[in-house]
Structures are given as C-alpha cells and as structure tokens.
Nucleic acid binder design. Structure first.
Lengths: 81, 81
DNA sequence: TCATGATGTTGCATTAATGCTACATAGCAT
DNA sequence: ATGCTATGTAGCATTAATGCAACATCATGA
C-alpha cells in the first residue's frame, strides 16, 4: 500500500478522519455527502493513500466539527486522542 | 484575474500569507525556501490564483508560525486581523 | 436464502497544483 | 547610469487529487 504522496514526495499526511467520522455515527457516504465529494474519496483519505487539497480538508473539518490541525498532521497521531 | 479554483469550482480559499510573511520581514523567496517550494508558487498563492494542497498549507503555516485556520479560510478575512 | 449496506480494490479520465524558465517592471541603492 | 532585489505575467510539462464505474467481500437482518 502506498503512502499519501503530496507533490513533495516522501511527505505523508496523517489524519483521524475515520475516528472522527465513526464517533459521529456517520458512514463514508454520509461524510462524503456533507463534504460534497465522492464516497470513494473518503476511503482513499482514511487509508491515507493520498492527502487532500486544502479546500477539501477545510470542508471535511467543518463536516466533522473539528479543527484542521486536529484532523490532519504531518506527524503520526498518538492513538486514542 | 482568476480566483483560486479548487477541484470544486466556485469555491475560493482566502489567505493571509502575504500579511504574515511581510510581518516577519520575509521575501517570497525566503518563505519559499522555508516551505520548500518555488518562489512563484508563493506569488500565485498570495494573489489567490489557486489554493494550495493541504501539505503545502501545513508547511507554510509552520514556516510562518501560524495555525492553518489563522492563515486560510473559505470566507474572506476582515482586514487588519 | 436473499438482500442490502459498508467497505476495499482496480482502472481510467480530467484537471488543478506545482516546478521551472524567461521576460518585464519598478524601486532602491551605489 | 547601472545593478540588484522583489514582484508580476505568461507559457509549458508533470503529477497528484478527484470523479466515477465495476466488481468483490463481509456483516447483518428479514
């Protein structure tokens, strides 16, 4: 499995989308609808196969009621918050 | 002049990169070096001709010692902070 | 059993973001 | 006048992010 490749190779972006989404009881399709993207895109992001554009990150953060910095990071998240 | 077009048309992203950069006494080239991008890319972003990837937004925020949400927004910034 | 929903996988097409080069302009020193 | 720095503009090439479709798997529930 490939890591999320930004335009700057070897610089993955980690996220807690799935954790936040599940905590709200949302399916990927639900979140995709709220964020206005294809449901597969949520899957790719949760699997960290690529990192989103800033606009998408902003939309997802809003849909999940989180700050961008709470959801996305260049350094891995510790588990369980 | 075109507004920044994300992959979702008609959804610009506003930013305060220039304001924050100038406040630190940095040239675009300086900021570009710190963020690891081409200096023209900073220019495009400051003119809001396009919106950055999330990774780039994170790197710029770090280079400017600001939160992503302080630098980028889907709604226009009020002037002077 | 059958259906349905949620998720994973693969593949293809489109386009925006970025790198890079070259040139122009304006200001500010010297 | 000459040079240097910062910036704007334009064009071209590459690639990652996204949309979308098809199919598979696995639960769960009727």
């Amino acid at each position: 499995m490939l890591l999320a490749m930004s335009r700057n190779p070897e610089e993955p972006v980690y996220n807690r989308i799935e954790e936040a989404r599940v905590a709200l009881g949302l399916s990927r399709q639900d979140l995709a609808d709220k964020a206005g993207v294809h449901y597969q895109t949520i899957g790719y992001l949760e699997r960290e196969e690529y990192s989103p554009s800033l606009v998408l990150a902003l939309r997802i953060a809003k849909a999940l009621n989180q700050e961008v910095s709470e959801l996305f990071s260049q350094t891995p998240f510790k588990k369980g918050k």
